[in-house]
Simulated assay, not measured.
Amino acid sequence: MTKTRKEKTNILKERFDVAVGGLEQGFSVITDKQTGVQYLAVNNSGVSVIVDKDGKPLLSEQETTSDNKISPF
């Protein structure tokens, strides 16, 4: 069964937390609630994983979920 656009959007909202702000709202930090991995999204540019000094993905300090079965596609 193919998911509708609205269903996909709802699944994405459940899985990801978006914090908008900085430099005149030019970027957002997106956190995957399941893995804790954080991404930097720059308006009109792209998205990149945020890494620590060792090159490993920066993880959020918030509690993550263990259900890895959510997919918007």
Rank of each mutant, 00 (worst) to 15 (best):
R15C: 04
E61V: 05
L40F: 00
V51P: 00
K69W: 00
V49W: 00
P57L: 12
Q25G: 06
T31R: 15
V37A: 01
S48E: 06
F27R: 14
G21H: 13
F27G: 10
K56D: 04
V49S: 00
P57V: 05
Q34P: 05
L40A: 02
P57C: 06
P72H: 13
S48D: 05
I11C: 04
G55C: 04
T64V: 14
V42N: 01
R5H: 10
T65R: 11
K6T: 14
K33D: 01
E24S: 09
D67Y: 07
T2W: 06
T65N: 11
T35R: 01
G22C: 06
I11Q: 11
L59S: 01
K3N: 06
R15V: 15
Q34M: 14
F16P: 03
E14L: 04
N43V: 04
V20Q: 13
K53Y: 13
Q38H: 04
V49F: 00
D17Q: 09
K3T: 03
S66W: 00
F27D: 05
F27W: 14
R5W: 09
G22N: 06
G26L: 10
K13E: 15
F73Q: 10
K6S: 12
Q38V: 00
N44M: 04
L58P: 04
G21D: 06
K8F: 02
L23D: 08
K3C: 04
Y39N: 07
Q62T: 08
L58S: 05
G55T: 08
L23Q: 02
Q25N: 15
G22F: 04
I30H: 05
V51D: 00
K3F: 11
E24A: 07
S60A: 11
L12A: 05
V49A: 12
T35L: 00
E14A: 05
K53C: 09
D54T: 12
G21Y: 06
F73V: 03
F73C: 01
L59M: 04
E14Q: 05
R15I: 11
K8E: 05
D32I: 01
N43P: 00
V42H: 00
S28I: 01
D67F: 13
S48Q: 11
L59A: 08
N68M: 13
Q62Y: 03
T9K: 14
V47Q: 08
L59K: 15
D54L: 10
M1S: 13
P72T: 09
A19G: 01
G46K: 06
Q25K: 14
K33Y: 03
E24L: 13
D52Y: 13
E61M: 02
I50F: 01
M1L: 13
